[in-house]
Computed example of a mutant assay.
Amino acid sequence: MKSVTIGENDAGQRLDKFLTKAYRNLPQAMLYKSIRKKDIKLNGKRCDISTRLNAGDVLTMYLKDEFFQQEPEEYDFLKAPLKLNILFEDENILILDKKPGLIVHPDENYHFDSLIARVQHYLYDKGEYRPQEENSFAPALVNRIDRNTGGIVMAAKNAESLRILNEKVKNRELKKLYLCIVCGRMEEKSATLEGYLEKNESQNRVYISSHGAPGAKSIRTHYRVLEERGAYSLLEIDLLTGRTHQIRAHLASIGHPLAGDGKYGTNRQNKKTGLPYQALYSYKLRFEFTSPAGILEYLNHREFEAKEIWFLKDFHSWNA
């Protein structure tokens, strides 16, 4: 038998989701059977798999101890470097400037160094993340960007902040602006591009078309020309829909691939720039809440900007 008290970071979850995350040795079939047979009770009473948990609730589980055995307390995130570029931090969130070359999450090959591992290592050393005291929550990233794209990434320190920010991202109550260098000069100095994006998982790339095909998703990309240097243009991008590789593929589809982009550009163009990867940076974040934001209401109308855009110095050295 085991009893556990639900903490703030576990509140709001469905009972079955909480148990699946907290006790990975507990098979799904056994979990559902135990709830039906009242071997799992909430506050001493029968409960349903869809019951939402509240802080202070007590779960009592009349199950074998083997289902509650935890892995040894060896945390892979402690192998990650502590280096972070922090634009803003408080008790709820971190706003970070991720540099190109760093993955945000471990990939299928698994690397001990990732942005989320660095965040968890940092918060662990500060005493703000104690995994041994958490049942199901770990600090998490709210948004992600490609490995070789730099820019602003948000991390939530608690479950309530994560829930709110995920909702705001879904409802597009955050504005994210990008800077990029494209090959060529744009015919229009400002425009909104529209099209359809189809993802090819096996190739890890996307394709853009003007007409929707089965499985394709509509996309809208607004750009504004900030400066021109020779055969290159510096653009500010407002991503009106957030799809995989949208900026890179959409601009390439109209004949203006990003400088340095090995996937959607050409080697001939890229060799001329000398850039090691695509010149793309998520450089500005603005909170534009149109609905209540709970404990994060104080962030409304605030704006954060990354100052060190690695490719701007190169761009300004090119002939005008």
Rank of each mutant, 00 (worst) to 15 (best):
I181K: 06
S161I: 00
L179M: 11
N158H: 10
N148L: 12
K176A: 06
G150D: 09
G151P: 04
N148A: 07
L177G: 01
N171D: 14
R147E: 13
T149A: 13
K170E: 13
R147M: 14
N148T: 09
A159F: 06
E167L: 10
K168Y: 04
R163M: 08
K176L: 15
K170H: 08
K175Y: 14
L174Q: 07
C180S: 08
G151C: 12
L174I: 15
V182T: 06
K175N: 15
E167K: 10
A155I: 10
K175W: 14
Y178F: 13
L165S: 06
I152M: 07
N166E: 08
R147W: 05
L162E: 00
Y178E: 07
L162Q: 00
V153G: 09
N148C: 07
A156S: 07
I152G: 03
R163G: 03
E173Q: 12
K168P: 00
N171P: 02
N171K: 15
K176E: 13
L162H: 01
N166L: 11
Y178P: 02
K157E: 06
R163V: 09
L179E: 06
C183I: 05
K175T: 15
C180V: 07
S161F: 00
E160L: 14
K170D: 02
R147A: 10
K175S: 15
T149N: 12
C180T: 14
L162A: 10
L174G: 06
L162P: 04
G150T: 07
R147H: 10
L177D: 12
I152F: 05
R163W: 02
V153A: 06
A156D: 02
K168D: 07
G151K: 04
E173R: 00
E167S: 14
L177H: 10
I152D: 00
I164S: 02
S161C: 09
K170L: 09
A159Q: 09
V182Q: 04
L174F: 13
E167D: 13
K175H: 15
I152N: 01
E173G: 00
E167A: 07
N171G: 08
R147V: 11
I181H: 05
N158F: 03
L179W: 11
L174W: 09
E173L: 04
V182H: 05
G151L: 09
L177F: 14
N171Y: 12
G151M: 13
K157W: 03
L165C: 06
R147P: 07
N158G: 04
R163C: 09
S161K: 04
N148K: 12
A159H: 12
Y178G: 03
L165E: 08
G150C: 04
C183H: 03
I164H: 01
C180Y: 01
E173D: 08
N171E: 14
A159K: 04
M154T: 13
N158Y: 01
R147N: 09
E167Y: 06
L179R: 07
G150S: 14
R163T: 11
K176R: 15
V169E: 08
N171A: 13
V153Y: 01
V169C: 05
M154P: 09
A155H: 05
E167T: 11
K176C: 11
A156M: 01
L177N: 10
